[in-house]
């Protein structure tokens, strides 16, 4: 059975067919990639690409000649949408509690494979298996996903400080439970077996992740409902501005406060004056620099924690992870 193409992939293909040049398709993919990395809604990315495609078909010039490099055109589209007040973002990095099992198990599958490779590289072709050896990848996977969910849900509902405390608490709890289980299991070995058995652990985790994901997948998209309550409207607006746009708490409070004052002066509802929370939020430029700083701070914290651990118990694998985390932190800090 042929696999269904996404609307964006179909547009990329159309670029390739327009002049019979495969590199035009790669150009369109480059534009999409840059916009999607900035969390622009896929439908809006498609709208921008269709405009460009129409001109390519009409003039039979290459998109590079007409619009510049993919990065240049993506930046021009992004700036234009910001200026027009209709930049629609989507929750690309959102993690709900319902998604934690599928993401946690998925990460556990990758970590199991990583551990297997590390042990084999260390010359350990067989090991004494304990429950902890399975609990470590699963615990880390669930811990990371739950920390992410705690950060995201609290950021939207309560603000940055609550999100930082909640995420820190969740990470610490998951780490302590996993470490305790690992220590306990050392006294209760399961038996001696090949290191390759991690393949089974990874396969079971991956299958469980897919099963959970399919079971939780909504059968149909919920019908959008108009928000009539001003408090609900304000909460929704604040959640979008903090979660998707990365705006700071003080600025979000100001924006929401202004809507109430203006609606009271105008004698109209906030919905009449400002539209839906989604549409009003689209008029504000995301604070990408702040989002990047937060991401960089997270990677820096992980890298430093790994570095401190190294002082107590040196290992080349942990040293590599620490350096990689610091590298990612620096890259996020410097990223455009």
């Amino acid at each position: 059975m042929a696999e269904a193409r996404t609307p964006l992939a179909a547009i990329h293909d159309e670029f390739g067919r327009a002049r019979g040049e495969h590199r035009d398709s790669a150009w369109a993919y480059g534009v999409s990639w840059r916009l999607m990395r900035r969390d622009v809604e896929p439908d809006q990315v498609g709208e921008g690409l269709k405009e460009a495609l129409a001109l390519v078909q009409e003039t039979e010039e290459s998109p590079e000649v007409l619009f510049g490099t993919p990065d240049e055109h993506a930046d021009a589209l992004y700036d234009r949408w910001v200026e027009e007040g209709r930049l629609h973002l989507w929750d690309a990095s959102r993690m709900t509690w319902a998604q934690v099992p599928s993401w946690g198990l998925g990460l556990a599958a990758f970590l199991s494979l990583g551990l297997m490779v590390a042990f084999l590289a260390n010359g350990e072709s067989s090991r004494t298996w304990t429950l902890g050896m399975i609990a470590i990848p699963v615990g880390i996977g669930f811990g990371v996903a739950a920390t992410w969910a705690a950060w995201d849900s609290l950021l939207r509902s309560r603000g940055t400080a609550a999100a930082a405390v909640g995420a820190g608490g969740t990470l610490a709890s998951a780490s302590i439970v996993t470490a305790m289980l690992n220590e306990w299991s050392k006294a209760h070995p399961l038996g001696h077996a090949s290191t390759w058995s991690y393949l089974w652990v990874a396969a079971v985790c991956a299958m469980a992740a897919v099963t959970w994901s399919r079971w939780r997948r909504p059968r149909s998209a919920p019908e959008p409902t108009g928000i009539t309550d001003v408090d609900e409207w304000s909460r929704e607006l604040a959640a979008i501005l903090r979660g998707r746009h990365g705006l700071g708490d003080a600025r979000v409070r100001t924006i929401v406060g202004d809507t109430h004052a203006h609606a009271a002066d105008a004698g109209r509802s906030v919905q009449e004056e400002f539209g839906t929370p989604e549409d009003y939020a689209a008029r504000f430029e995301p604070d990408r620099a702040r989002k990047r700083r937060i991401e960089a701070a997270c990677w820096l914290a992980i890298g430093v924690a790994q570095g401190l651990w190294l002082l107590d118990d040196f290992g080349w694998l942990r040293a590599t992870v620490a350096v990689a985390c610091l590298g990612v932190a620096w890259q996020n800090y410097r990223r455009d």
């Binding site: 100001t254 203006h262 105008a266 008029r283």
Partner: peptide, 26 residues
């Protein structure tokens, strides 16, 4: 904010809704 909207309307810019005015102020 509301008074700014009224001042602009009086000068012929039309009566702006809050959704157009406050993002500019921000």
């Amino acid at each position: 904010g509301y008074a700014i909207g009224q001042a602009l309307a009086a000068r012929g810019f039309g009566l702006l809704k809050g959704g157009s005015l406050y993002p500019v102020l921000s």
